[in-house]
Simulated assay, not measured.
Amino acid sequence: MELIHVNVNVADAEETIAFYEQFGFEETWEFETADGDTRNRYIADDNGVELQLSDTDGETDFEPGSAWDHLAIGVDDVDRVFAEIDHYGVDEEPTDHPEAGARVAFVRDPDGRRVELVESLE
């Protein structure tokens, strides 16, 4: 068994793609539903982990950030990435979590979802 992708609704796919490109994700493919209601765009990291972004053309009636807690992205230097990326809010500034063996920070993506930046302390 393997994780194929995670699907999230986004108000503006272009803005969301630009946010995740800061972490090395690249757009890989897209399709539109047969009824033409939803355009789905996919982005993937170097390991093939994929996010499916369902563009809602500005629709925000879904509760942004509430369907799941966060997406964790491994980085080499949490402090550097935290300082350099464009984000849409800070939930937790870089902090060591020795019990987890990691230094982490939590920021928000364009639709309000929590994104955890994780750096191994080992």
Rank of each mutant, 00 (worst) to 15 (best):
28 T>E: 13
114 R>K: 12
9 N>C: 03
26 E>L: 04
105 A>I: 02
56 T>Q: 15
40 N>P: 00
66 S>L: 10
110 P>D: 03
57 D>V: 04
55 D>H: 08
80 R>Y: 11
17 I>S: 04
80 R>W: 07
20 Y>G: 02
5 H>I: 02
110 P>S: 05
1 M>L: 10
122 E>V: 03
76 D>W: 04
6 V>D: 02
114 R>P: 00
58 G>V: 10
49 V>L: 10
101 G>Y: 14
93 E>W: 06
26 E>H: 10
59 E>I: 01
77 D>T: 06
109 D>M: 06
114 R>H: 05
119 E>Y: 07
54 S>E: 15
100 A>T: 02
100 A>D: 08
53 L>I: 05
26 E>V: 07
48 G>Q: 09
60 T>W: 03
42 Y>K: 08
46 D>P: 00
57 D>T: 06
31 F>S: 01
105 A>W: 11
90 V>C: 04
37 D>T: 08
18 A>Y: 06
31 F>C: 01
2 E>W: 06
78 V>A: 10
115 V>M: 07
4 I>E: 13
114 R>S: 08
112 G>S: 11
110 P>R: 09
119 E>P: 02
103 R>V: 03
84 E>A: 14
44 A>F: 08
41 R>D: 01
63 E>G: 03
43 I>C: 01
4 I>N: 13
27 E>M: 14
11 A>K: 14
65 G>L: 09
46 D>A: 11
21 E>M: 04
32 E>N: 00
2 E>N: 11
115 V>G: 05
48 G>K: 08
98 P>E: 07
60 T>S: 12
115 V>W: 12
9 N>R: 15
33 T>A: 09
30 E>M: 02
56 T>V: 00
20 Y>W: 07
111 D>K: 12
88 Y>Q: 04
77 D>I: 07
37 D>P: 00
60 T>I: 05
32 E>D: 01
43 I>H: 08
54 S>Q: 15
55 D>V: 05
3 L>M: 14
50 E>W: 08
118 V>I: 13
52 Q>M: 15
68 W>R: 09
39 R>L: 15
42 Y>N: 11
20 Y>T: 01
57 D>Y: 13
92 E>G: 02
78 V>N: 04
22 Q>F: 00
6 V>C: 11
89 G>L: 10
8 V>T: 13
85 I>R: 11
112 G>M: 13
